[in-house]
Computed example of a mutant assay.
Amino acid sequence: MSHADVQRAGDLPAKVDLTEGETYGWCACGRSSKQPFCDGSHQGTGLDPVVFVARKTETVFLCQCKQTGTPPLCDGSHSQ
């Protein structure tokens, strides 16, 4: 699957509260019904979620257009 086959899940980033030390799986394919997080819908796509551990408790903006250059964080790509 190419980057062009990724589904856009939204036009704006998702504001998310992360908890320090918790593990998260950001949906990279755009198919998850639990955006911006993975629900396993990527199976068979050749794409895997971006798994990360929150370094601190904070509010972040996670990409939903799936075009970010800084996954899972939004870099403004949705506005281009």
Rank of each mutant, 00 (worst) to 15 (best):
L62S: 08
D48T: 07
G10N: 05
C63H: 07
D39R: 13
Q67K: 11
V16P: 13
Q80R: 13
Q64R: 13
S33C: 11
Q7P: 01
E58D: 10
A14M: 11
L47C: 02
L18Y: 12
G40E: 12
Q43R: 13
P49T: 04
P13A: 10
P36K: 06
T68M: 01
F52C: 12
H42Y: 09
T70W: 02
G21Y: 03
R31F: 05
E20L: 03
V16E: 15
Q43M: 10
H78Q: 08
K66E: 02
D39C: 10
D17T: 15
E22F: 14
P49C: 10
H3R: 09
C27I: 02
G40K: 13
V50D: 01
Y24W: 11
C65G: 10
G69N: 12
A9D: 01
P71C: 07
W26L: 04
G21M: 05
M1W: 01
P49G: 03
S41F: 07
V50K: 01
Q67W: 03
G30F: 06
V6Y: 00
A28N: 10
C38K: 09
R8D: 00
L62P: 06
P71G: 08
V60I: 12
D48E: 15
H42E: 10
G25W: 13
G46N: 04
T23H: 05
M1P: 00
T19P: 01
C29M: 11
V16W: 15
W26Q: 06
T59G: 03
H78I: 05
E58S: 09
C29E: 12
F37H: 10
E22G: 04
E58A: 14
C27M: 06
P36H: 06
P13V: 12
D75Y: 09
G25L: 10
L62T: 02
H3M: 04
K15V: 14
A9P: 06
F52E: 12
P36W: 07
T57Y: 04
G40M: 08
Q80T: 09
E58G: 04
T70S: 14
G69Y: 00
S41T: 15
D11S: 03
L18K: 05
A4R: 01
V51R: 11
C63L: 03
K56V: 02
A28W: 00
S33Y: 02
A54M: 09
A54I: 13
T23N: 06
S79L: 15
A54P: 08
S41V: 12
D5V: 00
Y24C: 11
Q7T: 00
Q67I: 01
Q80D: 15
K56A: 14
P72N: 12
S41Q: 14
H78Y: 11
V16R: 07
P71F: 06
V60N: 07
D39G: 10
T70Q: 11
C63F: 06
G40Q: 12
C74N: 15
T59P: 05
D75T: 14
V16Y: 14
A54K: 08
K56T: 08
T68N: 02
E20I: 07
L73C: 04
T68A: 01
F61C: 05
V60Y: 07
K66W: 00
L12F: 08
Q80H: 14
P72G: 11
A28K: 01
Q67F: 01
R55V: 05
